[in-house]
């Protein structure tokens, strides 16, 4: 609430200091909340914004961290905005829910986990994703490493009886995934750079396949986990 007892001069000073940024949190919130209903105050604030706007040029421009737009897009819209769009019916059609869960949840979670997992400083933001279980629990960590890719189980969980878990990557713009191999029982796998070069936006998924892997070089079973590589925050 802006006190009704304020003189016009005090209201003018309040508007000026709101725009300048020196009000305390409570005062600033009160002014912001009053702007919708108090047209005179809103007018005074707009005038101060216009007066001081040229000072904005004193802030040196600086490039934001890579991946920030993806975070904004994910926060704006819980559905994927940059799904790869091959002309034909995609092989993951009908699997929207795990896709969404993994890609968006994984990105958000990756930002949180990155701080704990990435102990070594990296000159470039490291590409990573966390694949989530159907209960949104972290299940697998996928990281770019040494030019290739490394997968590690966070919550080890065996493949279904008599089946194998196969790891796949789908670079952005590609129409068919590349097999990265079967996941051994100990839940860790390193993929050489000759097999795949990690790139931002690359989809990573784990499917259930016959023993020995998919016979056709493409996923045949259901996707258990999926996520999208993005630069880890804070590096």
């Amino acid at each position: 609430m802006i006190p009704a007892s304020l003189t016009p001069e005090e209201r003018e000073a309040l508007a000026a200091e709101y725009v300048l940024g020196t009000l305390e949190a409570r005062e600033a919130q009160a002014v912001a909340a009053a702007l919708d209903s108090d047209a005179a105050l809103a007018e005074a604030v707009a005038e101060w914004e216009a007066r001081l706007a040229p000072l904005i040029a004193l802030a040196p421009p600086e490039a934001p961290p890579p991946g920030l737009w993806d975070r904004i897009a994910a926060a704006l819209d819980p559905t994927p905005t940059r799904a790869p769009a091959p002309a034909k019916r995609p092989w993951w059609a009908g699997l929207r829910d795990p896709w969404r869960m993994g890609a968006i949840g994984g990105t958000a979670l990756a930002a949180g986990l990155a701080a704990f997992i990435l102990l070594r400083p990296e000159p470039e933001p490291r590409l990573m994703t966390v694949l989530l279980s159907e209960r949104d629990q972290p299940a697998w960590l996928v990281e770019a490493d040494g030019g290739g890719l490394r997968l590690a189980s966070v919550n080890p969980r065996p493949a279904p009886e008599g089946r194998a878990l196969q790891l796949w990557a789908l670079p952005q713009g590609a129409t068919a995934p590349t097999s990265l191999g079967l996941i051994p029982a100990e839940g860790r796998i390193n993929v050489a750079p000759t097999t795949i070069r990690p790139s931002p936006g690359m989809l990573i998924e784990i499917t259930v396949e016959p023993p020995g892997g998919s016979p056709i070089g493409r996923p045949t079973g259901p996707i258990l986990f999926i996520g999208r590589l993005s630069p880890a925050a804070g590096t």
């Binding site: 904005i56 802030a59 040196p60 421009p61 600086e62 490039a63 934001p64 920030l68 737009w69």
Partner: peptide, 8 residues
Amino acid sequence: QSTRLFGV
């Protein structure tokens, strides 16, 4: 605008 605005 993001480079200018991130600078701000």
